[in-house]
């Protein structure tokens, strides 16, 4: 069924690697680009995508605009996993208004890392909501700015109203291994989710 989705070996001496991705979400200035930069093997790249979409479904203000156009800056990087697999990290603003274009970014993602700044918890609500509804496995990662944690993790969990099933970790977006561990938490969550689904009849 997927034969037309793969590279044609006749045309090329070798096959491009299989791409996989993890989405990194959160409010502005929360550390998404820093996290991507810490672990990516290429300097983070930015692409600006103009998104036009019917916004009626997400607009809760009562207006029903026929179309909304937004320019969204997306920072991304990548990590070579092995000879045949490349992991992409896409950082995207988690503001409410952009929710409608996430589908494009999120479809096929292994999972998502939602970065929060405990001083501005509100900023990550739309991302948490979105991933919950979309059924994407995600982990909430509290970025320790200057090594400080302003709130107890249990308070953060309570404030975000996420279930106990959602892993909550702390990390430092500036530290490569710390970012790696946060991504590993996402992948372990993705693994157990996939296991549950595979086991289900």
């Amino acid at each position: 069924m997927d034969s037309n989705r793969s590279a044609d070996p006749v045309l090329a001496p070798k096959k491009p690697p299989a791409p996989v991705k993890i989405v990194i979400a959160g409010g502005f200035g929360v550390g998404k680009t820093t996290a991507v930069a810490s672990i990516s093997e290429i300097p983070p790249l930015r692409t600006e995508a103009v998104m036009t979409s019917a916004a009626a479904e997400i607009d809760r203000t009562g207006h029903v605009p026929s179309k909304t156009t937004t320019t969204v800056a997306m920072d991304f990087g990548c990590i070579t996993i092995d000879d045949d697999v490349k992991l992409y990290l896409f950082g995207t603003p988690g503001q409410d208004r952009f929710g409608f274009m996430w589908h494009d970014l999120v479809v096929g993602a292994l999972g998502a890392l939602v970065i929060v700044d405990t001083r501005r918890l509100d900023d990550c609500y739309p991302a948490v909501d979105y991933f919950e509804k979309a059924g994407v496995p995600f982990v909430v990662a509290v970025n320790k700015f200057d090594g400080m944690l302003n709130h107890d993790l249990n308070d953060v969990r309570w404030a975000l109203a996420v279930s106990d099933e959602v892993p909550l970790v702390t990390f430092d977006a500036r530290e490569k291994l710390s970012v790696r561990d946060a991504l590993l938490a996402v992948l372990r969550k993705a693994f157990s989710r996939a296991q549950t689904r595979t086991a289900a009849p």
Partner: peptide, 13 residues
């Protein structure tokens, strides 16, 4: 030549 992600990757243990 393009190589697209496999649709079932998120379920691929």
């Amino acid at each position: 030549v393009i190589r697209r992600p496999e649709a079932e990757t998120p379920q691929d243990l």
